[in-house]
Design a protein around this nucleic acid. Structure first.
Lengths: 343, 343
DNA sequence: CTGTTAGCGCTTTCAC
DNA sequence: GTGAAAGCGCTAACAG
């Protein structure tokens, strides 16, 4: 009657004429089982197509062997790279990766995390939609599940966190533009409320002001249309920019397209520098210089830190030491043509 | 002593001074519970921060509310779009998406699927690394878990499957090039053993031969280097191509880069058409014409078909009717500049 | 080496 | 309305 379901350990035991303990031992490495019984049980398992039910094992207090990844979008190359890296680390630790997306909506984020907690994932990797909101902080504060934040921190949280040094990267990028001799460096972006963007804006301002120049900042670029609007206005103004620093991927691309459409020579008339590298940055003409982020490393390190929180480093000390560790990774300037570099 | 773990339903019951049944009812909608008790239990749940353990629920024979996605890579835009769509459908069905990658390695694929089965995912969405191998077919044949295949079918399998009409798309693309008047249309690609590539090659050949032209096929393009090698050879030959049809994304990009590097005018000297759209195809100069695949639709339809296999369409008839349904989705030619079209 | 026996946290009859 | 009790599939003492 239940031929239509998964065979159970008990069924295997009965059919093999042994106790459940023996079968359990067999599927857990076969220690302390006589070669004969082992072989026999193994064959029964084979014919029955038996596969242990992880959910049942979990119930005995063990880990679920799953970790959750909570990101704004998985279609975004940045986060899909994170996912790939996290998945690799998960697999290396005999675990599965569950992915949920939030579209940067704090409410969806909270809901997603709650579901993940109900499923008792062993840990959580989160790119918080809102670094400041208290709802997320409180929720995480109340759970015993290890959490490591990626790309963005959570304010006043004691959780581990791995981010890029956005400030330093943006500062270095702007400095590079300044070294090229540009005097009116505009900074374009959208989503200024995101932690990453905020840091980059600070870096940009720091550099520009440090050089005695005037910041020209517009945070309203969300799509091609708004990019065109802003750039047209800037170009038609009394003091048109001679360089543009785009703080996020989509803005870089839209800016490039607008400049191309308006027949503005890059970098001769207006130079361009983007934050975050992207696939065809070196293929388009001119090739686009960018500040590159260590995406894979970020996710890998975060995932490893996560696992180290519930795995004794060597099975020995179940160290929970790394609880609040914050890691800031270096970015790198990739000099291509759009900033004025020869390459 | 166990303050360090998740509170359990029993703890809630004890603290609320009610039976476990009542608490169970509360967390399942609160039917058949007096308003007073309901409110009280709810408050206890709140203070304790109780969250039901899904693993335990699963054990009572219910669904795990998870589905698995098995793809070659999640960093690949094609599959990350699939993942995004699948995740959306999963969420709409109150489920979680577990992602595993195979790098197109059949052995890893088998292992991944086994792990997923052990976790008793309610269903599996698979882009098979090997459409022909019997190991995968046999494994799936033996499991009771619903499976729907995406992008690639499994030969002789009775499982559902959602793919793009690769043959028709490639045929249409080649026909378009032929209509432009090109006579020596080369077809470049890598991974000819993949189902999708095979179909596209057939479509290309069908069109070329139908027009009385000679197929010029090279399936050795795996990276920039090999692309340059092949294209240089082709161009230096006695009968250089006047058009190139690239059967996969990376090949299209590499071909474009090589042509650019060799200063070959596109489309004047050599026209270019790619299979599968990509983000900057319309941004590069010339913009690249492509055969577009309905990626999101593919994953969405596959996921929906999957859920329909273990959900009564309306909770009524638990229809298992759609078991072997094969869906072939139309592709679309996007005319940009590289093929010779004005746009 | 091997089997018996409790549960893990939850749902679910079946009575009260 | 509410609760006692029997498992779901598995692991982990404890005996043999």
């Amino acid at each position: 009657m239940k031929r239509n379901a998964h065979p159970t350990l008990t069924e295997v035991a009965r059919k093999a004429g042994v106790g459940t303990t023996t079968v359990s031992r067999v599927i857990n490495g076969g220690e302390r089982v006589s070669p004969a019984t082992l072989a026999h049980v193994l064959s029964v398992i084979e014919t029955l197509g038996y596969m242990p039910n992880e959910a049942a094992r979990t119930l005995k207090g063990h880990r679920t062997k799953t970790i959750g990844l909570v990101v704004p979008s998985i279609a975004d190359p940045f986060f899909s790279s994170c996912a790939e890296a996290a998945q690799a680390v998960a697999r290396a630790n005999d675990s599965l990766l569950i992915v949920t997306t939030t579209q940067n909506d704090p409410a969806i984020e909270i809901e997603s995390i709650k579901v993940l907690i109900r499923h008792r994932t062993d840990g959580l990797l989160i790119a918080p939609a809102d670094s400041k909101g208290s709802a997320l902080r409180d929720l995480l504060h109340r759970t015993v599940i290890p959490v490591v934040t990626i790309d963005r921190p959570i304010e006043n949280s004691s959780r581990g966190c791995v981010v890029a040094d956005n400030f330093k990267g943006a500062k270095a990028g702007t400095d590079h533009l300044i070294e090229h001799g540009y005097k009116r460096i505009a900074c374009l972006t959208g989503e200024p409320s995101l932690y990453t963007i905020g840091e980059r804006i600070k870096g940009y301002k720091k550099a520009v002001e440090g050089a005695g120049l005037t910041p020209i900042l517009d945070t309203s670029v969300t799509d091609y249309k708004s990019a065109e609007l802003v750039i047209r206005r800037l170009l038609a103004g009394p003091n048109p920019p001679d360089a543009i620093f785009a703080l996020k991927n989509s803005t870089t691309i839209h800016t490039f397209e607008v400049l191309q459409k308006l027949n503005v020579a890059v970098p001769q008339t207006v130079a361009l520098l983007g934050f975050d590298d992207f696939e065809l940055a070196s293929t388009v003409r001119p090739s686009i210089s960018v500040i590159e982020q260590p995406v894979e490393n970020m996710a890998r390190i975060a995932a490893e830190q996560l696992f180290s929180q519930f795995l004794g480093t060597n099975g020995a000390t179940p160290e929970r030491s790394k609880l609040g560790e914050v890691v800031k990774l270096e970015t790198r300037l990739i000099r291509r043509s759009s900033c004025g570099c020869g390459a």
